[in-house]
Simulated scan of single mutants.
Amino acid sequence: MKLAETVTFGGGGLDRSAEIRGDDAKLAELFAGPEARILPMWRAKPHLRGEETLALAPVAPGHPILEHATKTAFFLGFHDEEAWFVADVSSWTPEEQDLSTLDSFVDQSEQRYPGAGDDARFAELRQSMTRLSPKDAELAAAARGLLEWHRTHPFCARCGKKSAPAQAGWQRNCPACGAQHFPRTDPVVIMLITHGNSVLMGRSPAWPEGMYSLLAGFIEPGETIEAAVRREVFEEAGVRVGAVNYLASQPWPFPASLMLGCRGAAETDDIQIDPKEIEDARWISREEMLSIMAGEHPSIWGARRGAIARFLLENWLADRLD
């Protein structure tokens, strides 16, 4: 697919420079240097600035907000001459600020650190990803995914003892048994399944009323991408799929997925959903999908902007799945 790397979080040009992750002296020099860019993140929210167009809002070494960092800043890589790091400042407690929607499906709250600048604030990445440049979106995705892995994997999977960050944050080592652990990424297939002029859409019961998207599911051990597409579609909607083609991928750090976008041809249009898997599935014509994407449908709204599901649907409607 010619447009594959234009998907959100893709094609930002980050040079991860893995060869220097074990060089503590070099990293310390970079961290203290004039080209250092330290991105604070609070409860998985990046520090941003701007209004219609957003940008990351890094700080310099010694900034007061870094006093709340729970660990040494982790090295993300280079963009041009800038050395980017991420610091988890989740120990900071915002005072007299709205925290009521933090755990909701759509967190629209923003938290402002005193003295960080009039327009600087922490904001949910899913609500801001489409307003970031490709560079900033890739940096934010890498930062969020890396910090979430450390947050959820503090113990050794082999012996259960506490492990410690290593390799500039891209590894955890167990001092008890010597095991090494690396950031987790879960492969997920997401499928544009078509039958004639229609596409198969479904919804989870946990989603807001009226929200539909493409079917998706995790790849199982020993399974190919193509087999996972056919299995997941049949499990969820009872639809048999024939030919399957890979289209594009998207890092999705919510918390740690790699979305593998595929196209599949349905062999039948009969739907039999598994209510344990999804709440509903239906075939939607191109004409109806145009109404949904324009926000004009009376009862259905589609995949969120920035998600690979919407990317695939938009290119399907434009006949650009090549």
Rank of each mutant, 00 (worst) to 15 (best):
A4T: 00
V7Q: 01
G12A: 07
D15N: 14
A18L: 08
R21I: 00
R21K: 04
D23K: 05
D24G: 05
L27V: 04
A28Y: 00
E29S: 15
F31V: 00
P34E: 09
P34G: 08
G50K: 06
G50H: 09
E51H: 13
T53C: 03
A55W: 02
L56F: 08
P61G: 00
H68T: 01
A73I: 00
F74I: 02
F75K: 12
F78P: 01
H79F: 15
E82W: 11
A83R: 09
W84Q: 04
F85H: 04
A87D: 05
V89N: 11
S90R: 06
S90L: 04
S91Q: 10
L99K: 14
L99E: 15
E110L: 04
Q111A: 12
D119T: 14
A120S: 14
R121L: 12
A123H: 09
M129W: 07
T130V: 15
L132G: 07
L139T: 02
A143W: 11
E148D: 13
H150N: 10
R151I: 04
P154I: 04
A157G: 11
A157H: 14
R158H: 05
A166M: 10
G169D: 13
R172T: 15
Q180T: 14
P183M: 11
V188D: 05
M191W: 01
L200R: 10
M201S: 02
M201A: 14
S204L: 12
P205V: 06
W207N: 12
W207Y: 12
E209F: 13
G210F: 14
G210M: 09
M211Y: 12
M211T: 02
G222A: 13
T224P: 07
I225W: 06
A227Q: 14
A228P: 03
R231H: 10
E232P: 01
E235F: 02
A237M: 09
V239W: 06
V241T: 09
Q250P: 08
W252H: 15
M259D: 08
M259R: 07
C262Y: 06
A265R: 13
A266W: 09
I271E: 13
K276T: 04
D280F: 04
W283N: 06
S291Y: 00
S291F: 01
A294C: 03
P298C: 03
W301G: 00
R304C: 00
R304S: 07
G306V: 08
I308K: 03
R310H: 08
L313W: 03
E314M: 07
L317C: 09
L317W: 03
